[in-house]
């Protein structure tokens, strides 16, 4: 009988080769995507998901082909907001079809599969030790999704990232330098401070050097969300946070977007961007989208 040291390589599992094959499948699946844009922050609760959806809607309204990958597997919100809760993942002859909103935005969200009363659970042989493997498993799942779904020809694929500075960097590492970043903050000192750390963490990746699969990511800029709130009664923007007007983030500002309670309600109901009335908030979102496109081109 063979002993442990008699086994050549890894016993036929081809672990390294399989990982390389996965990466090749991901690259193949994304070959038709022109721009990969990750919307992150580091800070939670600043409106990353809402902004991602509205950016997608505004891009779509300009005739662009857009999809969203809700990368927040543990707290997915895009399924509800985009109106694809309960949409099926239907396998085609080679890839899995992407659920779509009524205005044609492709959306992958774990929220399509998992009800809001359930959490994402992985079968494990090491229960109670998830700190040792969970992040690896989630990124492997992200890779499988990128490789398996039919992204097709897209102008922009938006990644809605989970909160956490370290997660933002991990996504930058996983997605590679072809993915550009937009960071979201709100005009509070606390939020700006956390987002500044994310900027610093992403800038630190410059040490990886230009070129290659592990180079730094391009930072397109930041959006200051909830910059006041829109009062429909008086059709005016009113202050929401008592913070210095100017942010000190060392990346370009793509614009500011006021909070609109009516918009939040519509998000909860999955009403598409195209059906929003012309308000200062919608115009602000359009301005941000315009600057985003200018920066990308």
């Amino acid at each position: 009988m063979k002993g442990y040291h008699d086994i050549v390589g890894d016993g036929g599992s081809r672990i390294l080769e399989q990982v390389a094959e996965q990466r090749a499948r991901i690259n193949d699946g994304l070959a038709g995507v022109r721009h990969l844009v990750a919307v992150g922050s580091g800070k939670g609760g600043v409106g990353k998901s809402t902004l991602t959806l509205h950016l997608a809607g505004a891009l779509r309204a300009r005739g662009l082909r857009v999809a969203i990958l809700d990368a927040d597997f543990n707290g997915p919100s895009q399924a509800r907001m985009a109106g694809v809760q309960g949409a099926l993942f239907v396998p085609g002859s080679h890839k899995v079809s992407l659920p779509r909103t009524s205005d044609g935005i492709g959306v992958f969200s774990m929220g399509s599969l998992i009800s809001e009363s359930a959490s994402l659970e992985f079968a494990s042989t090491a229960p109670g030790e998830s700190q040792t493997w969970r992040a690896t498993r989630e990124f492997a799942l992200l890779g499988e999704i990128l490789a398996s779904f039919e992204w097709g020809a897209l102008d922009v694929l938006l990644f809605d990232l989970p909160p956490g500075t370290e997660r933002t960097v991990q996504y930058a590492d996983f997605l590679g330098p072809q993915t550009s970043f937009v960071l979201v903050t709100i005009p509070s000192e606390v939020s700006r401070g956390v987002v500044a750390r994310s900027v610093a963490a992403l800038l630190a990746r410059r040490s990886l050097g230009e070129g290659g699969s592990k180079g730094p990511n391009r930072m397109l800029g930041y959006v200051e969300n909830m910059s006041g709130y829109y009062c429909r009664d008086c059709n005016a923007i009113k202050p929401l946070f008592d913070a210095p007007k100017q942010s000190t983030l060392e990346i370009p500002c793509l614009g500011t977007v006021p909070f609109d309670p009516e918009l939040a309600r519509r998000c909860d109901q999955g009403i598409p961007f195209a059906e929003l009335t012309d308000t200062p908030v919608r115009r602000a979102l359009n301005d941000v989208t315009g600057r985003l496109l200018e920066t990308l081109s």
Binding site: S13, S124, T132, R137, G143
Partner: peptide, 14 residues
């Protein structure tokens, strides 16, 4: 086992 499985690979020869 868990760490290797977390890479999303199959373990064992084809």
């Amino acid at each position: 086992t868990q760490v290797v499985q977390s890479l999303g690979v199959r373990i064992g020869p084809a």
